[in-house]
Simulated scan of single mutants.
Amino acid sequence: MNEILFFGLNNYPKFIKNEPDRITKPIQFKFENENENENENENEKQIKQISSSEFSTIFLFKNGKAIKYLKENDSNQNPQKIQIENIQKVTVGYENEAILTIEGNVFAKGKYINSKNPKEFINISSLIEDKNDRIIQDIVCSAYSIYLLTSNQNVYGIGLNQFGQLGLDYETLKKTEKPILMMKNVSKIFSGTDSLHIFLLNSNQELFGCGYNEYGQIGLGESRAETKIQKLTKIQNISKGKIIDIKCGFTHSIMLIENENQNPKRKLYSCGHNRYNGLGKNRSTCEFTEIKSSLFENDDNILDISYDGFKPIQIELPKLRFNENISNYHVSCGYRKSFIYYSLSSFSNLEEDLIKLFERKEFCNISFKTRKWRNNRSS
């Protein structure tokens, strides 16, 4: 089993027994049933992905199996097996879950996905009208909707459309339990666990957004002037470069852009409400503007981003020593909890290093690829 570090809210469920309800420093996380399959190949026990929200946390292993913890789990707070095989990706929203299999099928559950039985997984990819478009390449959950990117580069949405997050006027479509086509020629989908907005990037690096925009979190209009963007609209005035990633919070968004002609190559931009300093700067903004901090001296090392934050800080991970070129660890952020997971074979005792994170109390918001930490740099 690979190493997992956990910090944040440690109740409902109680991830780590005999520990306080709030864990402020990363400590090792162990599954209660990790010895259940002692004869299983060690490589088959490695964590591939963790997806977490307020109500559920799913752990996906490299063998294509998954388990989950629920907020209302049994009294022992033990994980439950997910009875789906060959899983490629998992994603959870505020009140929904979706699972992508290696074969390209998507199984999902939730109040707005299957109102008759919201706790039962159903194959939503099989509900796409065009039978030639049912092989799914990627999936993303938002708070109450799920988005499917097909092998033909088409995006379908299913679930709630209260703020136009499915790309249609609310009066035309309030919700749907059948996937509807939103946009063609799409390369990436971006959204967030509790967000009510979405971004779609086409093959020409043109970005489109729709959904809840009261705080300018789509990067369009003025705050409170355009509460709903009820159709996919092109996002203008974005810095030149390749969009690597976008993460969406409830009231803000953070974008990572790479430009080979600038130094550093990678820069962060944010927009939306700054009530909890989630923008990494001192004011709210309705357009994507750069996040500037001394922590970002070498933004080439920015690895990935997640959606909640307070201010840029550094967190030193205890008892870890990295190889100089290590890059295969991951950070996963959920509702008031964060996980850092990595393979034991990736580490040596050559040097200590730091992972830089955005952090709002027990939340973390950005992870960096590790690099050698020089003694003449502040910690």
Rank of each mutant, 00 (worst) to 15 (best):
Y335P: 03
G334Y: 05
L303F: 01
K311E: 15
P312Y: 13
I315Y: 08
F339D: 04
D300F: 03
R321G: 15
E324M: 06
N328K: 04
E297G: 14
F339N: 03
K311G: 15
N301W: 01
R336Y: 13
S332V: 00
I291R: 02
S332D: 08
N323E: 14
I291Q: 05
E290R: 07
N328Y: 01
I302M: 06
N323S: 11
P318D: 14
R336C: 06
I305V: 11
P318H: 07
I313S: 15
D304H: 11
N298G: 05
F322I: 05
L295D: 08
S338N: 12
S327A: 03
S332C: 10
N298M: 10
S327Y: 01
D300C: 03
Y335K: 06
Q314W: 12
V331M: 11
I291E: 08
I340Y: 04
S293Y: 06
E290I: 05
I326D: 11
D304P: 00
R321T: 13
S293H: 13
I340A: 10
L317V: 12
I302A: 08
S294Y: 14
I313E: 15
Q314A: 13
P312R: 04
N325P: 00
I340S: 03
F296Q: 05
Y307M: 12
S332Y: 02
E316H: 05
F296M: 13
D304T: 07
K337I: 01
Y335I: 01
E316Q: 10
E324Q: 13
Y307Q: 13
D304E: 05
K292E: 15
D304M: 01
D304S: 14
R321S: 15
S293Q: 07
S327Q: 03
I313F: 10
D304G: 11
E297C: 11
L295P: 01
N325L: 09
I326C: 11
D308G: 06
S327N: 06
P312G: 08
S332H: 03
K311S: 15
N325H: 09
K319F: 15
I305K: 02
G309V: 02
Q314R: 10
L303G: 07
Y307K: 11
F322V: 05
N298V: 10
K311P: 03
K292D: 13
V331Q: 08
S338Q: 05
S306P: 00
G309K: 01
H330L: 00
I291C: 09
N301P: 00
L295R: 05
L295G: 09
F339Q: 02
L320Y: 06
V331A: 07
C333S: 13
S338Y: 06
E324G: 04
I340Q: 02
L320Q: 11
K311W: 11
G334M: 07
S293V: 09
I315E: 14
S338H: 03
N325A: 09
R321D: 12
S294K: 15
S306M: 08
L317N: 05
P318W: 10
E324W: 04
E324L: 12
H330D: 08
G309N: 08
G309T: 05
K319Y: 15
I326S: 11
N325F: 09
D300V: 01
D299I: 00
L303Y: 02
S306N: 11
G334R: 03
